[in-house]
């Protein structure tokens, strides 16, 4: 926490080294969070960059976070994704193809894993916004339950229940014969 405060202090002075460190630390988790929600590589990259642009604007306007950079960045990422969905600027869809099995796997295993990944991402899009939010924070942003609860202003019990229901729903969607509508 002390490190983050120091980092924030230096970032407020637009210290290049501190800003680079912030970008290195948070770009990937933010991208993962966004990618889980938008399922489009190009959009996920653009929106991730937008989160950092907003950080600089907040630093410039003296409205940057005072204590928790991580929580603040998450909140901005969530807002950026919501803004994106509100405006329906989903022009291009470059299917995400990350996390494919290694080349040491046989072709059948590669195909099976690719299908599972694709189905999982598609199924994610069918969950409620709140469920997507929780799963993206938990598994994209790697946020522990306690932090998710704090970030969303809910109890840990509520988040655990939301997570369990979302996982159960996803499982149903992934059952053979289920539709992702």
């Amino acid at each position: 926490m002390q490190d983050e405060l120091t980092l924030l202090h230096r970032a407020r002075a637009l210290d290049a080294e501190a800003l680079a460190q912030i970008h290195d630390t948070y770009y990937v988790p933010i991208y993962r969070y966004i990618a889980m929600r938008v399922n489009d590589r190009e959009t996920a990259e653009d929106l991730s960059s937008e989160v950092f642009t907003r950080l600089l604007q907040a630093l410039r306007d003296k409205s940057a976070p005072q204590n928790t950079l991580r929580g603040w960045l998450f909140a901005v990422a969530a807002r950026v994704v919501n803004d994106h969905f509100r405006q329906h600027y989903r022009i291009h869809h470059t299917e995400l193809e990350e996390s494919l099995p290694g080349t040491e796997d046989g072709p059948e295993r590669v195909l099976e894993a690719r299908m599972t990944q694709k189905e999982l991402r598609q199924a994610l899009q069918t969950l409620t916004e709140e469920q997507q939010h929780v799963l993206a924070l938990r598994f994209g942003f790697d946020m522990p339950i306690k932090e998710v609860a704090h970030a969303l202003g809910k109890s840990e019990g509520s988040i655990k229940m939301l997570q369990a229901r979302a996982v159960a729903m996803l499982t149903r969607k992934l059952q053979p014969g289920a539709t992702n509508a």
Binding site: M36, S99, L120
Partner: peptide
């Protein structure tokens, strides 16, 4: 199956280029 879904989610290793 539900635990497998959760494991798959945690292994959904989305990485930017």
């Amino acid at each position: 199956p539900m635990l497998e879904t959760a494991v798959a989610l945690s292994q959904l290793n989305l990485q930017p280029s």
